[in-house]
Computed example of a mutant assay.
Amino acid sequence: MADVAFTKGHGTGNDFVVVSDPDGDLDLTDDQVAALCDRRFGIGADGLLRVVRSARIPEGEAVLSEDGAAEWFMDYRNADGSKAEMCGNGVRVFARFLLDSGLTELAEDAELAVGTRAGVKRVTRSDDGFRVDIGPWRTTAAEPTVRARGLSVARPGLGIDVGNPHIVVALASEQELEGLDLTVLPIVEPLPEHGANIEFVVPEDPLVSGGVGHVRMRVFERGVGETLSCGTGVAATALAVREWAGTGAPDRWRVDVPGGTLGVTMEQREDGEHVLLSGPAALVYTGTVALAD
């Protein structure tokens, strides 16, 4: 068994094993990733971030053709080892690792281009940590219903794609949100081909204060289960609630998750409306772990 250095990090409780592999020497299997993320027999995490140069990973070719400045690629894997397109909390933790380890620099007024399977994501500094431009978004054509333990009947969901797939479900009360049992996989009909993250949301009272919308959310992440936070899920939640709220709904939102609070802003750009996510990112500890064959 080989020893691998790692760093444990999190963004509002959404935690990751970060492995630095600049030259792409590691070829982690799904089972190895799952073992590292196991909370009883491994380090424990919602996912794994491999820090690799875009030029040293096959998916990096498309990233570099989009933006040659995207030197670093976030190879994100879910806790079960499966590959995922993007992770909003993960990008902020990834940026924190690059900066703290001296692999890159980020001036106050500059941006950092990070390669992902959902394209290049741009990170800037913010008052609460980092802000990530997740990019353009879209609603999906499907009209799914979602069943979850704790809900008496299936609820309609709104499909939102922010580079990875989400289904947002509105609940009637705080009691419904608290009563959900998300140790059990919600049932989605029809189920998207590649699955989806499922967000359950209730509005705060008032919904809008000082021009900022405010909601609470819990999430079941595909390939993981319930997590304390999901950055792209927070973005999808704000977009869905703004859609439901109708004309006059704000473009700035606060979303409370079990692990803290994240900010979402919608901005019009030449290529359409972008959604931006802001929040903290922390590195907790470093160590070395034996990687099973």
Rank of each mutant, 00 (worst) to 15 (best):
M1N: 09
V4Y: 08
G9H: 01
N14C: 02
V19S: 00
D23C: 07
L28P: 01
Q32C: 14
A35S: 15
C37F: 04
R40H: 15
G42N: 14
G42P: 11
I43H: 03
G47S: 00
V52C: 09
P58S: 12
A62E: 14
E66Q: 15
E71A: 14
F73R: 09
C87G: 00
C87M: 03
V93M: 05
V93T: 11
A95E: 05
L98S: 08
D100Y: 12
S101N: 10
E105H: 09
A110K: 04
G119Q: 11
S126G: 02
D127L: 08
R131T: 14
R138L: 07
T140A: 09
A141V: 01
A141P: 03
R147C: 05
L151G: 11
A154Y: 06
I160N: 09
G163S: 09
N164W: 10
P165Y: 12
V169Q: 09
V169A: 13
A170I: 04
A170H: 06
A172Y: 01
S173C: 11
S173F: 12
E174F: 11
L177K: 11
G179H: 10
D181A: 15
I187F: 08
H194M: 07
E199H: 15
F200I: 12
P203T: 13
S209P: 08
R218Q: 05
R218P: 07
R222G: 04
G223Q: 06
G231P: 01
E243I: 04
D256T: 12
V257Y: 00
P258C: 08
T261Q: 12
T265P: 01
E273F: 01
V275T: 06
A282F: 02
